[in-house]
């Protein structure tokens, strides 16, 4: 399953909830304000690093760049463009949007 998260992890619990329900092998795509979770050295970085042991985490590059975060993305989080977003949807049987 592909999960999308579009909320900042500093104000909302969408990412935390998503990670609670994301099973081994799932993919999580951070979009819109969700991309802030992809940054290094934040209060949630450890949580994201821990999640990377069981799920793949991606961040939408145009959203990362729009927020000036292109040099702050942590290792292990992969950047995709909108085409990559489409590919992720194709590769997974269903999509859960954690709005």
């Amino acid at each position: 399953m592909l999960h999308t998260v579009n909320k900042s992890p500093f104000e909302h619990r969408a990412l935390e909830t998503c990670l609670k329900f994301a099973r081994q092998g799932a993919a999580v795509l951070l979009i819109e304000d969700g991309v802030y979770a992809a940054a290094r050295d934040t209060a949630v970085a450890e949580q994201v690093q821990e999640a990377l042991k069981t799920v793949s985490i991606y961040a939408l590059k145009p959203d990362v760049e729009a927020r000036g975060m292109q040099n702050r993305v942590m290792d292990g989080v992969r950047l995709v463009d909108y085409g990559g977003f489409v590919d992720l949807v194709v590769e997974h049987n269903a999509v859960q949007s954690w709005l």
Binding site: N6, I31, E32, D33, L60, P62, D63, D81, Y82, G83, F85, V86, D87
Partner: peptide, 16 residues
């Protein structure tokens, strides 16, 4: 941003 993201997603899907 939801409408923008949806639009870009649709465009990318069509392009593929």
């Amino acid at each position: 941003e939801a409408s923008d993201t949806a639009y870009q997603f649709v465009r990318a899907a069509l392009a593929k």
